[in-house]
């Protein structure tokens, strides 16, 4: 359990490197690296959220707010004040962390549906601020003129270059998070999830751990928001509304919430389903989306990462029967 299996991670890394090269050769999936950029940005948020929900057992319906904070801090400081984008990205993460502490300390004392409502309320309040503070944020029409990213004169100005940048971040965060889970901290988190009373009796400072994970997830969401803003060179509030927070939950549920791999798979699937694959259904798209979601929840309660286990179960049954 404690050993990190290296092979899947290596395959994952190779896949990331090879994917754009392959898609370039096949016209039908030529635009997939562009979609993968968003899948990567969403993965950053879902990795944090998965740690918060799957491991620390806390629900958050306000994660879009941190995503928005990262995007708006970066956008305002670069477009309005002309500061360096990388520096603004870090400022965004610090702001998100501070907000997460202020919201997290009182909220994470709440339980179940009360916590869900508190985070939901927080998300809506932040959204209203993005919408109303027109002088700062440009209001619902959004902000444009956000610069792109470049490093030592190398500009990340094409889809492929940005793809590698985003997935470099995702991969680093992924490896770091996996290591955290396998460490003492990770064990403590799992203990909290199974029984708060028992873990606090064991000397784990339960509420501090929860806040730390909440802050970590906020920092990741903020990083994702900055990457989004620098890629689109434009942001508007509706990207960071309540429905995006719900979409994140759906990603986690679809991928499987007790596994960091599930966070990435879920982000990937929802990105492609909602931006590309369901286009075919036109007006019925939403219905198909809802039905897929419901079927997964009913038949794959562990999410997509549960499939190998189910298959293994079926296979073993067959073997023992035969």
């Amino acid at each position: 359990m404690l050993r990190i299996r290296k092979l899947p991670i290596i395959i994952f890394a190779l896949f990331i490197i090879v994917f754009p090269l392959v898609s370039r050769l096949i016209p039908a999936i030529q635009n997939y690296p562009d979609l993968m950029i968003f899948a990567g940005i969403y993965s950053l948020i879902t990795i944090g959220l998965s740690l918060l929900m799957g491991y620390a057992g806390q629900i958050s319906l306000g994660q879009a707010a941190f995503y928005g904070i990262g995007a708006y801090v970066s956008a305002i400081l670069t477009a309005t004040y002309g500061l360096n984008p990388w520096f603004c990205m870090v400022i965004g993460m610090i702001v998100a962390a501070i907000v997460a502490v202020l919201v997290g300390v009182p909220s994470l004392k709440l339980k179940g549906h009360y916590l869900a409502m508190a985070t939901l309320a927080f998300g809506i309040i932040v959204f209203i601020i993005f919408n109303e503070e027109v002088e700062w944020t440009g209001g619902p029409d959004g902000m444009s003129g956000i610069p792109g990213l470049s490093l030592f004169g190398f500009a990340f100005d094409s889809v492929e270059k940005y793809y590698y940048l985003v997935w470099f971040f995702v991969f680093s965060v992924f490896v770091f998070t996996i290591n955290v889970i396998q460490s003492r901290t990770g064990r403590a988190l799992r203990a909290i999830h199974s029984s708060e009373a028992a873990s606090s009796a064991m000397g784990i400072n339960v509420s501090r751990f929860k806040v730390v994970v909440f802050v970590y997830s906020a920092i990741l969401a903020s990083l994702a928001g900055s990457l989004y803003a620098y890629y689109l060179n434009f942001i508007n509030p509706s990207t960071f509304d309540l429905f995006f927070s719900i979409k994140l939950l759906i990603m986690i549920a679809l991928g499987g919430m007790h596994d960091i791999w599930g966070a990435i798979i879920g982000a990937f699937l929802i990105t492609f389903l909602s931006f590309e694959w369901l286009h075919f259904f036109e007006e019925f798209e939403v219905i198909v989306y809802g039905v897929i979601l419901l079927l997964v929840i009913i038949f794959l309660p562990q999410g997509m990462v549960g499939i190998p286990k189910i298959l293994k179960g079926l296979f073993n049954k067959k073997v023992s029967n035969g």
């Binding site: 635009n31 968003f38 989004y228 689109l232 434009f234 508007n236 990207t239 909602s274 931006f275």
Partner: peptide, 17 residues
């Protein structure tokens, strides 16, 4: 769907693909 991200992706797809 009135969504900035989706619009951005769609226009890129129209132009390049």
């Amino acid at each position: 769907e009135g969504d900035a991200t989706k619009t951005n992706l769609a226009v890129k797809k129209l132009i390049t693909k």
